[in-house]
Simulated assay, not measured.
Amino acid sequence: MMDSSVTIYKKAGYVSYGTSDADKITVRNSLTSIKTNRAKDTQVTESTIIMEYEKLPLAAFKGGNTGIIDNYAHIEVYFDDLIQYSGVIKKYNYNEGDKTITLTCHDMFYRLLNATNEDIVYGATTAVNVIADLVGRAGLNFYQAGGDNYSISNLKIAEGTVYADVIQNFLETMHAAIRCSKSGTIILEDQYPDYIEGGGDRNHFDWVYKDNSNNSSDDAGRDASLMKNILKVTCDVKNGDKTQTVFDKFEDPLMTEYLNGEKWYDIIDNPLANTQQKEKQ
């Protein structure tokens, strides 16, 4: 039987939390349910944890610095002493009848959904350096495992721009993807990392799944309306005082064949796709 536990840390500022025994609590025997959604099309990984709440150090509902279980408190989930999830408590709800508390948690990617509070200007640098700097500004650790890097001569990010929106524009031109690891590090990797069938994805799992010890559910499918075989990629490029829209149009013959020869067209605008290679990515 797999052993599971949840550790919650007392808040201590934007990017820190208390680590002494008095500033954390580990729950083992009163856990009722742990459900984590790691769907790739969801930016923030959400985990819902249900446990008995009697005698837990709850924060005062009106606020203050007493208690540990509170909004934005750091939380970690362990299976057999291996960390499987880390994030913050975004919402908690008591059930007086069942004597349980439900914690709705978001992993650390949630910080990248915040907006910049000032203009950010970059000189001669690279795409990876910009992503790493933005991740650092959000108070997170960064690691590059893949992705096609390229040089940038200058870039200005206006105040109020969401970090994740800027990063997404880069990902589209780098043939890359980004995710938050189970320990909270933001990882830049190839868009399609290696996958090992049967033994689980080595990038995400720490054990071989067995139906008698691990239960999971999945719902998968594909929507034909998302399939486009002709794409026009546009980008506005400044030339002196004038702005010129450059573009390239691409067709995938294999996709055209798959769609029975039908022509399905879409336009994608990316402010960073100012070369044909970036457009193709």
Score class of each variant (00 low, 15 high):
A73K: 12
D80W: 13
I152C: 05
E76M: 14
K91W: 05
S86E: 10
A60L: 11
K91T: 12
A73F: 07
G87L: 12
A138I: 13
Y94Q: 01
V130Q: 07
V121Q: 14
T66F: 09
D80H: 04
V77I: 15
D98T: 14
K99L: 00
Y94D: 00
E76G: 10
N149K: 10
L103S: 08
D107N: 14
I89S: 09
G123Y: 12
V77Y: 15
A115Y: 03
N65A: 13
L58Q: 07
K156P: 01
N114P: 00
Y110E: 08
K99N: 00
F109C: 05
A60Y: 11
A138R: 13
G139I: 05
D70G: 06
L140R: 14
Q144A: 06
F79R: 11
I152H: 05
N117H: 01
G87K: 08
K90H: 06
L58D: 03
K91D: 10
Y122S: 02
Y92K: 14
K99V: 00
L82R: 09
L103E: 03
Y85W: 07
L82Y: 06
N149C: 13
F142M: 06
T66H: 10
N149R: 12
A158E: 14
G67M: 06
G136T: 09
Y78E: 03
A124K: 15
Y122P: 01
G64E: 03
D98S: 15
H106A: 08
A124Y: 15
G147W: 07
G123W: 09
G87D: 10
N149F: 13
K99M: 00
T125F: 08
I89V: 15
S153Q: 14
Y78L: 03
F109I: 07
L134D: 08
G87T: 09
V121A: 15
S151F: 07
A124Q: 15
D119Q: 09
D107K: 11
Y94M: 11
L155D: 07
Y72R: 08
V77K: 05
P57H: 01
N71M: 02
Y78V: 06
G136P: 06
I157V: 02
V135W: 08
G146C: 08
A132M: 11
F109M: 15
K156L: 07
G146L: 05
D80I: 06
T125N: 10
F61P: 01
A158Q: 13
A115W: 00
L56M: 14
F109G: 10
D119P: 01
K62P: 00
G63W: 02
K90Y: 05
N129P: 04
N141W: 00
L155E: 01
D81H: 09
I89E: 07
K90W: 05
D98V: 04
V121M: 10
Q144E: 13
T66A: 11
G97L: 09
D133I: 08
A115V: 12
N93A: 11
I120A: 09
I157A: 01
V135F: 08
K99A: 01
R111Q: 12
V135T: 15
H106I: 02
Y72I: 02
L112E: 04
G67Q: 03
T125A: 12
K62E: 14
P57A: 04
L58G: 05
I131Y: 06
L155N: 02
F142K: 05
H106E: 09
A59M: 03
T66D: 13
